[in-house]
Amino acid sequence: MKAAVLAELIAARAAHRVVALATWLDGSDARVVTVDDAPPALAATVAQALREERALVAEVDGGEVLVEPHLPPTRLILVGAVHIAEPLAAMAALAGFAVTIVDPRRAWATAARFPGQTLDVRWPDDAIAALTPDVRTAVVTLTHDPKLDDPALIAALRTPAFYVGCLGSQKTHAARRARLAEAGFDDAALARLHGPVGLRIGARSPAEIAVSILGEIIASLRGAA
């Protein structure tokens, strides 16, 4: 592998880009590729390796090419250090997400309530802009307060986040969509919102609601929803 290819791979990972490293196993070549720019003979394997998050070997012109996915870490940004955020943050961390809990209300965002979790006390729009959600990031608003939720959603919808969810009833979600439409988002943008948030599993307790939300996030991540 040329040092320049190594540098390109490191830069792509640092920029949270979704890429694959294709290594010809006769030692003749190694390249950083994406789904869009992979050589035609490798395209299907690159897509599969990225989707399944595992390295695969492709047969190309009688030789073999190792295709390794290099994906950004999965992240979850929770807006609102509310009760439901406690089990949701813990469960998401177990599922491999790097979790950040955003809440400018310092009485809520305390280490005592969220042991070992990353807390961010900036205003939600500032925090989300700074955290730069990518295609492997989910954002969920939990505060029920439009002063906090709406700026977060406006910021999140301007990013490629793979999942944007909003806790709240059908009625509050309809009102929220109307406010966001007023703010300039069209139907296609608003269709990205998952609200009311979560899979319908009859969840009642905060922990059960957390399961339903995390289930929906994983279904979106894995292309099952």
Partner: peptide, 20 residues
């Protein structure tokens, strides 16, 4: 998975540092 990813990043960074 998260740990494997972290390991890969550290290995690539060390390789680049040695080369540099």
């Amino acid at each position: 998975m998260a740990d494997a990813t972290h390991d890969t990043g550290a290995v690539l960074a060390q390789a680049a540092a040695w080369k540099a």
